[in-house]
Simulated assay, not measured.
Amino acid sequence: MANNWTDVSAFDDVPEEDVLGVETAGKDVALYNVEGQVYATDNICTHGHARLCDGFLEGFEIECPLHQGKFDIRDGRPTCQPVTEAVRSYPVKIENGRVFVDLG
């Protein structure tokens, strides 16, 4: 399966140790910048229909603003109740100061 790399943001627009919500190719994606590495997941919590970009990022965990469930931003897996279903994560690459996400 071919990669579907989509240019979603300038690297400098993704705040350090924080999260940025972007809409691209019909998807709502959250971008996280932790220790200089960018990660990407769907931006909608799998437990309650809340935007993860409105949550609180601590280390590699994003906390949903609605019910305080948490996900590991590296692979989308839930790390605390009430979340039980993983959020989709996406491969990321940085080229020429731009963030590309494989939405395929």
Rank of each mutant, 00 (worst) to 15 (best):
E17D: 15
L103D: 02
E61S: 08
M1K: 12
C64D: 03
G69K: 09
G69P: 03
V14F: 07
E58P: 01
P78H: 08
G76D: 01
D102H: 02
E23T: 14
V38I: 15
P91K: 11
Q68S: 13
L66S: 14
E95L: 09
R88H: 05
P65V: 05
Q68V: 02
G21F: 05
N3Y: 01
R88Y: 02
L52V: 04
G21P: 04
A10R: 14
L57M: 03
N33K: 14
A25W: 01
Q81T: 11
G55S: 09
F71P: 11
A2W: 00
E23F: 12
L52P: 06
A50N: 10
L31K: 10
P82C: 15
D75E: 03
V22Y: 12
N33C: 13
L31C: 12
G97I: 11
P82I: 15
C53A: 15
Y32N: 01
R88F: 03
I44T: 15
D54T: 00
V92Q: 07
I44K: 13
C80P: 00
D102K: 09
D28C: 04
A10V: 04
Y32T: 01
G59C: 09
L103G: 01
V29E: 01
V87Y: 12
L103P: 03
E58I: 11
Q81M: 08
H49C: 12
C80L: 10
V83R: 04
R98T: 06
R74Y: 08
A10L: 15
F71T: 09
I94Y: 12
L20D: 10
R51P: 05
F100D: 00
A86G: 12
P15W: 04
E17P: 05
T24G: 00
L57Q: 02
A30T: 08
P82V: 15
F100A: 07
Q68F: 13
L52Q: 02
G97R: 04
